[in-house]
Structure formats: structure tokens, C-alpha cells
Amino acid sequence: MSKFSRAIRDHAVPLALIAPSILVILVVVLLPLMFSFYTSFTNYRLIRPDTLWDWIGLRNYQRLLADWDFWVAFGRTILFLTVALNLELLFGLGLALLVNKITWGQRTLRTIMMFPMMFSPILVGFQFKYVFNDTIGLVNNALQSLGLTEFAIPFLVDRWLAFFSISFAEIWMSTSIFAILILAGLFAMPKDPIEAARVDGCSNWQVFRHITLPFLMPFIFIAMTIRSLDVARAYDVVDVMTGGGPAQRTELLWTLIARTAYDDARMGRANAMAYASILLSIFFTWYFFRKLMDARKHLGAF
């Protein structure tokens, strides 16, 4: 009897038990992935089902390499990710540290802090589209009423203001994810090292820099990993606020891919774009996981 057959016989029960899960994963994840990967080598257009068999080899990928708009959107997505993640981390850390200090009404505050997470991204998009509108927007009206400006500021039109506006909406919606995870880290933190450091005469900054922050880093990197996947596929908020425009000034990977796939019905090309974009998510996931492992090693968790 071969080694393989023996292994199957010895592990028959566990294999039988996990077989349904493997089957479900195959059907739900692997098959669609293989199908979409195949279509990226075809001229598949949704409105022409027979184009599914129109094999064009690497043409979609070749065009992608030469598609300046795609690479600009790729770069902008990385910038958006960098800005959003760093600012969310800063604000989330600040919020968590402040909330952690409160002794009365902390639970209520924690609940309030989570409100933005409870809104659908589409609603958040509409909310900030209104807030930043140039004629009826809240910000412009407030600035004009206070006499701070006489002209409407085109928040959703100007290249950098539009980028600021979509970043603001994204950060507003998701900072609490960082805050909650960091707060969980603060709750789990042993008090002894901090007390020992204070007895040794460490300043608040030294305690934070050398004890609190290293302890929080694994929590921060978990939040970073989750959020990097989220932001790398940011779509709803941006689509509602600017639709990737004007003139592609706020075009991110997924606004471009969704338009190519559904509005243009060019699913083959869109899938080629999506596979190139996945590289971004894989890179950030790998990077933050490596950082997470380093941080845990530093804490002596392994």
C-alpha cells in the first residue's frame, strides 16, 4: 500500500469531516477565481455571452501595461491607502488613549465612537457629498456665512481637495476600527511594567514609547491588515462622492474596474485589471503580517 493510500486510510475520519468545507471552498471561491482568471484572457463582454470563448491571449494584460490611466489609478490607490491608514492609526490611537483615561461613561463613549462604523458606506458617501458640495454644501455655507471666504470652494473638483474629501470620508468612517482594536489592546495590557517604569522614574512619553506602544503594535498591525484590504478595494464612498472624477482626479482601482466591468460590460479586461490589483492587496497583507510577527517576537510572544 502506498504512503498516500495509507495516509488517507489513517486520516479517513478527519478527511471526511473537512471534505464538505473543502468542497464549499472549491465551489464558492476557487471555481469563480479560476473562471474570472480565464476570462481575463478573453474578449468577454457581458452583453455578448459568446465572447466568453473569444481567446485573445495576453492582449488584456498587454494593454493594461500600456494603460497610463490604470497605473495612475493604481498609484493613487496606494497613496489613498497610505494617507488613510496612517491618519486612521494616529486618530484611532489618540481616541483610544483618551477613552482609556475616562473613568465615568466610558461604555457610552465607546458605543458613540462606533457610530460611524454602523453607517453603510453609500450613506457616508452621500453625507459627505452634501457636506462638501460647492453650492449647497455645509462647509461652503459655513465658511461663507462666517465671512471666511466669498467664493465657493470646489472641494469635490479641485485635484487635491477632492482627494482630501474622499480621504476625510474614509477616515471618518473607519477610524473607530483602529480605536476599538487599540482600546482592546490597552484593556489587555498588564499594569505591572508601567508601574515598574514609573517607579524607575520614566516620563509619560518614555512609558508610552517603550512600554505601551510596543505592546499595542500587534493590535495596530491587525487593524492595519484588515483596513489595508478594505481600503485597497475602496469603492462605495468614492463612487457616490465623485464617481472617480472629475477627469479621473479621484479614480481608484475599483471605481475604474467597476466601470469597465459593468458600465462598459468589458468583463475580460476588467478581470485583468482586478488580477493586477490583487497584487496590491497581497503585498500589503504580506507586509503587515510580517510586521505583526516581528512585533509579537519583540514582545516575546513566540
Binding site: A247, Q248, E251, D263, D264, A265, R266
Partner: peptide, 17 residues
């Protein structure tokens, strides 16, 4: 027509801006 329109409008915006 939809695809033609989608190729056109971002460029029209770029000129307008």
C-alpha cells in the same frame, strides 16, 4: 454607445477643468 460615452466623458471633463 455606453462604452463610447465612458471613453469620452472623463476626457471632456479633463478639458473643461
Amino acid at each position: 454607445w455606453g462604452e463610447v460615452s465612458n471613453a469620452l466623458w472623463p476626457q471632456l471633463q479633463a478639458a473643461i477643468l
